[in-house]
């Protein structure tokens, strides 16, 4: 039960105060490097032209969508096994961030697809899998907020995060299976094109920048969630206090 100690708002606030400059600063620096090198200091692709630069947002966003989900599953396991309140709060705090990265990946994929395929949406195996991941995020967030008691929502969505973590590879496999059945293998996949070393720098910088950005946003959101829970507890205490007054 001394887990509560680490999850106490004061302790977490101290920890996040110390980490915040590093995560926010790291995000600013790496995203700046990524944007500069991505837009100006890297060549256009000989096949795709300037549109290849969408990749510098699309591919890191795809990585982040999976990375955040992995975090969600770990937080879910921690919430269920140790009943760690911070893990419960963390899941609720980071899920919308992961969903936002997933949505960004879908939008950039669509923007990239228009010049490549001439249409905004293609049932490409990867893009379809990302879409399903987005649905799972939506289900997680809906379940998390579907109960009057926040603990119940946190623990139910933790189970869903784990069930999703086990299922997502299978869903991905089935979507690949479906895709190969219905499309000839010759069609161009939404793959990263043959990567020139000069493209690796912006790609890597954006990925690191996104990760720092995620950490910074997660810290802020977890802190806000903890404050909200504290507020809720104070409200409960006030309600309980008023009954004592009435009885006296």
């Amino acid at each position: 039960m001394n887990w509560h100690r680490y999850a106490s708002p004061a302790n977490f606030k101290r920890l996040s105060d110390r980490l915040m400059p590093w995560t926010a600063g790291g995000a600013a620096v790496f995203l700046a490097i990524g944007v500069w090198t991505g837009l100006f200091a890297s060549p256009a692709d000989y096949q795709q032209g300037e549109t290849v630069r969408i990749m510098y947002v699309h591919v890191p966003a795809a990585w982040m969508s999976m990375f955040v989900y992995a975090n969600l599953a770990v937080a879910g396991a921690a919430a269920l096994v140790w009943r760690h309140p911070l893990a419960e709060v963390a899941g609720r705090a980071i899920a919308p961030v992961g969903a936002a990265f997933t949505f960004l990946c879908l939008v950039t994929g669509s923007l990239w697809g228009k010049p490549m395929w001439g249409t905004w949406w293609v049932w490409d195996a990867r893009l379809t899998s990302v879409l399903i991941l987005f649905f799972v995020y939506l289900a997680y967030m809906a379940l998390n907020s579907a109960f009057d008691e926040p603990e119940r929502g946190a623990r139910a969505s933790a189970v869903l995060a784990l069930v999703g973590a086990i299922n997502l590879p299978i869903i991905k496999f089935s979507v690949d299976w479906w895709n190969t059945l219905h499309q000839p293998a010759s069609i161009t996949r939404l793959d990263a094109p043959a990567v020139d070393p000069s493209m690796l720098v912006p790609l890597f910088a954006m990925a690191v920048g996104f990760t720092f950005f995620f950490l910074a946003v997660a810290l802020v959101r977890i802190r806000a969630e903890l404050l909200e829970r504290r507020l809720e507890a104070l409200r409960h205490a006030r309600v309980a206090g008023s009954t004592i007054v009435e009885r006296a």
Binding site: I132, A142, L143, F147, A156
Partner: peptide
């Protein structure tokens, strides 16, 4: 998972339908 949830049916669909995809495909 959705026992006692405020928004029953639609929530259940959102949770379950992604898990049904492999069955449908195979």
């Amino acid at each position: 998972l959705s026992v006692g949830a405020r928004k029953g049916g639609a929530l259940l669909a959102l949770i379950v339908l992604p898990l049904y995809i492999p069955v449908l495909i195979f």
